[in-house]
Simulated assay, not measured.
Amino acid sequence: MKKTYGYCRISTKSQSIERQIRNIIREYPDADIVEEVCTGTSLQRTNWIKLKNKLKKGDVVVFDSVSRMSRNSGEGIKEYFELMDKGIELIFLKEQYINTGTYKRAVERELEKTGNKIADLYINATNEVFRILAEEQIKIAFDQSEKEVMDLRQRTKEGIETARLNGKQIGGQVGKSFKTKKSVEAKEIILKHSKRFGGSLNNEECWKLAGISENSFYKYVKELELENK
């Protein structure tokens, strides 16, 4: 008997996951919800891996959007086809055109052969075009998801640089702390290395690398997130 799962992911605990859950339950009331707080730039996520390991042929995984599955285009596309080949159905509420069911219908829409060699050459070419177009749509969706992360990083870096040049306060919405050389350098390290912003270090590893306290780390993270809402 097939099972339906809803996978919901947020990057940081300061974000809300409720909207994703509501959207999935509205369409799939019986879905078992799996929640995750982790960056989308890597598929090496604890709860995602646990879910994958128990999926069986015929099972369904529902995402609010493709970005909840992956913000890494290369890894996302590879994972998509690996799961589809195992008979797992993937559904993206905001990008229905790349659901595995939609893709399968596109590539299975093969024209029947005629027995005429020349005509069959055209038919084979047409069938191949169907596949290429379907796969290209999937790639575009994952590329866009990855681009959103790159844009966020760039906007944040530009915001820090602008604040530095203008002598303005960084994270003005958080208390009354003013920028210092150390805070600017620490934020740049956090942006580059923290898992919260697509890096590879966990929270403790990141604040130790930046040479700041745990409290300062969470303060800077909050300021960075507010700057880029």
Rank of each mutant, 00 (worst) to 15 (best):
E188T: 11
G171S: 07
E136D: 12
P29A: 09
E214D: 13
I24L: 02
L226R: 15
G87Q: 04
E82F: 10
D30I: 09
V34H: 08
Y220W: 10
N116V: 07
C206N: 01
K222F: 13
I212N: 01
Y7T: 06
L83C: 06
E112L: 12
N203S: 12
E82I: 13
Y28E: 00
K56G: 10
N53H: 12
V174K: 08
L51R: 05
G175V: 01
S145Q: 04
E108A: 08
S65M: 06
T41D: 06
R105Q: 12
M84D: 04
Y122P: 02
I118A: 09
V60Q: 09
V60W: 05
E225G: 07
T4V: 11
K229L: 14
W207Y: 15
N215P: 15
E158C: 09
L224W: 05
N127S: 07
N215M: 15
R196K: 14
E185Y: 08
R26S: 09
Q169C: 11
D85P: 05
K54I: 15
C38W: 14
C8N: 02
I17P: 01
L226N: 15
I10H: 02
V129T: 11
K2N: 12
T100M: 10
F81N: 02
G211W: 05
I21G: 03
G87A: 02
S200N: 08
L165Q: 14
G76T: 00
R45D: 03
F178V: 14
Y7L: 01
H193K: 13
F142V: 01
V174S: 08
L226P: 12
L226K: 14
N99L: 08
S65F: 01
T180W: 09
G171N: 00
Q96P: 14
E188R: 13
V184R: 11
I77Q: 01
V60D: 05
V149D: 12
E185F: 10
E161A: 15
V184I: 14
M84T: 06
I17F: 05
E223M: 13
V60H: 09
I21K: 09
G87T: 06
K181Y: 12
Q96A: 15
K182G: 11
